[in-house]
Design a protein around this nucleic acid. Sequence first.
DNA 1: AACTGTGAAGTTTTTCACAGCC
DNA 2: GGCTGTGAAAAACTTCACAGTT
Lengths: 208, 208
Amino acid sequence: MPNVLSSNIPDIVIGRLPIYLRALTRLAQEGRDVTSSHELGQRLGISSAQIRKDLSHFGGFGKQGTGYQIAYLIEQLKQVLKVDQEWEVALVGVGDLGRAVAHYRGFAERGFRIVAAFDTDSSKVGKSIDGVAVQSTDTLDTFIREHKIKIAMIAVPAESAQAVADLLIEAGVRAILNYAPINLNVPDNVHVQYIDPVTHLQRMTYYL
Amino acid sequence: MPNVLSSNIPDIVIGRLPIYLRALTRLAQEGRDVTSSHELGQRLGISSAQIRKDLSHFGGFGKQGTGYQIAYLIEQLKQVLKVDQEWEVALVGVGDLGRAVAHYRGFAERGFRIVAAFDTDSSKVGKSIDGVAVQSTDTLDTFIREHKIKIAMIAVPAESAQAVADLLIEAGVRAILNYAPINLNVPDNVHVQYIDPVTHLQRMTYYL
DNA sequence: AACTGTGAAGTTTTTCACAGCC
DNA sequence: GGCTGTGAAAAACTTCACAGTT
């Protein structure tokens, strides 16, 4: 019944899988072998039915009466999300924000390796950030094509973000993590995710 | 018809308002006076009907045949979101991540002022990060109570995040922006938002 | 006894489509 | 002609509840 190939799986479901994966990894770190949709739901503030239904899109990962083997479920989810491999990522913009992004250990730890950094500021080009040489944006297209890089992070000012995105997409990038506080217009086959801490704060002040 | 007071407005609607606000602010910067739900929708990749319906929850902000006065709509949205004022924010954890958060200019620019930083590492206590003195976590409770701080950002390792959240909530914090890659369990009257760039990346790799 | 996987029911969210106004 | 605000319809999503398995 579950159909892994055709992309009829709701986006919202895909969005929860990384959360499940993160919680499962934590459980594994705590030395646990088995869990249940109920326990996972409690930890995440999500109903157990939703977790079961989400997982059921991809196959029967659990055992009735027992629950889910944590290591196995992690492995399966990584496969579904295609994070059972290392991804090479490009970073554009090495100002304050870009440098902070480059220094963040969490990317490498979880399979995303920053292999290139670009900036238009010639005073930054040639320097090294966390072992990655900063290149001129002029070389962006060539580098990304040659290395077949599919994922990029944008950490430039809002004014330049759309132009950078256009460059990246032209060079073959298909997934963009945008730290600039602006919406990007991209073709349907390109995915964008946004990180803007202020919008998160503004979402909470409503309730205060 | 619209009812601003009773909190029967869907969460998902509130979540989109900061996005609208950001796009409108940008339009204003571009020197524009008036816009329409259609234009805004195009920029954001959202249907015009959705924008109109979202806004209609809070009142009739637009004019038929004309559209929306940008400055007026910004003002109204800020009021709804309660960001027509400055908020004082506490930061817990001043390791690499916490320092990067403290240095980010976007918070102050958009009305969130970091007024206190806490860390358990005594070698960091007493130092100053971007003009804010780092205090021992021992003084967290007193400081937050005295200054009636309602918003905090957590930038400590995953292992300590829940304990820090408990402390903050006990001291009166009602909104938490959590940079630690772990889910927090909090009472119903406390709001949490998460920033974990890796989950965003993992959400996109599925489609590659 | 405990738990999954899943149709069916229920709820929420989005889109449609149009009256009313500028 | 162009646009908003909004009921009604449609679509998407979540929860229920239970048969089936360990």
